[in-house]
């Protein structure tokens, strides 16, 4: 574009610098996690000579990150499973089956998409308290499902609306009921969209702190992100241990990102192209 090769290089240098600035903070954190407190005080930048796992082990065991980690894994797994189940059922019904009131329902769900959690959190906390769901795993799972379901339905409905109707007709002629079509045709055919939405929802739930703080106040039920925030106060004079806790919370996301980057991007951009 614009022909001039030098212009491209003029742009490329700051872009490369920005790329470094994007990666460096995490590299810095990993480096700090390997240092002793003394090394950190003396020199923050230089790479550690040896890979020292003491701080990571300490953060994992005595600080309690393993407990928080397990809490998060359980809650995220249950939330994503439930989101995909309810989302695919509703997405199939709204995207592919036309019935009376289906477009009005879809609009209602879209409207819910634009109600941020902050706007409903006070009454939701009260509903949770009244129903005894505060500080329980089902309570947090339900809160996550409610939060991310509209988005899940929106994406799955638009995916299912692209499935050719002939496939459904053929399955019906073979004797399938609507439920059969859902189970035998729609679930397998929707696999790519389910993976994409599932990964995205897993990230949303894993990364959340506000909903978790509100619904799971007690210490032993903390999810990993709330655990990280509690480290800040406790270990303000032991930065390497603090950095280790941060690293433990970031590594699963990094791994998921390395393997499923395309699916994540697909999920993020799906809404923009549908308009």
């Amino acid at each position: 574009m614009t022909g001039a090769r030098p212009t491209r290089w003029v742009v490329a240098v700051p872009m490369a610098a920005l790329a470094l600035a994007t990666i460096y903070p995490l590299v810095f954190t990993a480096n700090v996690a390997m240092k002793t407190r003394r090394e950190y005080t003396l020199d923050r930048f230089s790479p550690t000579g040896s890979l020292r796992w003491d701080n990571i082990v300490k953060a994992w065991t005595s600080v309690g990150m393993s407990r928080y980690f397990l809490n998060s894994v359980v809650v995220v797994a249950c939330s994503v499973a439930l989101l995909l189940l309810l989302g695919s059922m509703a997405g199939f019904a709204l995207g592919r089956l036309r019935f009376r009131g289906s477009s009005a329902l879809f609009l209602g769900i879209l409207a819910a998409l634009f109600v941020p959690f902050q706007v409903i959190m006070v009454p939701l906390a009260r509903i949770m308290a009244d129903t005894g769901l505060v500080d329980t795993y089902p309570g947090l799972v339900l809160a996550y499902v409610a939060q991310f379901l509209p988005f899940t339905i929106f994406l799955l409905a638009s995916y299912y609306s692209t499935v050719p109707p002939e496939i459904i007709d053929a399955a019906r002629i073979d004797g399938n009921t609507t439920y059969g079509v859902y189970r035998r045709i729609m679930l397998p055919i929707g696999a790519p969209a389910l993976v994409s939405v599932g990964v995205l929802n897993a990230l949303f739930c894993w990364n959340d702190v506000l909903i978790s703080l509100l619904v799971m106040p007690s210490a032993e039920h903390r999810t990993l992100m709330v655990g990280v925030t509690s480290l800040r106060g406790q270990y303000s004079d032991d930065i390497p241990t603090f950095a280790s806790g941060v690293l433990i919370a970031a590594i699963p996301v990094l791994v998921v990102y390395l393997f499923l980057q395309r699916q994540i991007a697909d999920g993020v951009t799906a809404g923009s192209t549908k308009g």
Binding site: L86, G87, M89, A90, F92, A93, L94, L97, F99, S102, L105, G108, I109, A111, A112, V115, V119, I120, V122, P123, L124, R126, I127, L142, A143, V145, A146, Q147, L149, P150, I153, T177, T178, Y179, Y182
Partner: peptide, 30 residues
Amino acid sequence: ERLAPLVLVAPAVLVIVVMRLWPLLLGINF
């Protein structure tokens, strides 16, 4: 068969209405 689509959307609609739309009204009232 006619009820099937409604049965499929019902759980999702229930969750969204009870935990997203109802709290919105409740909050404004509150």
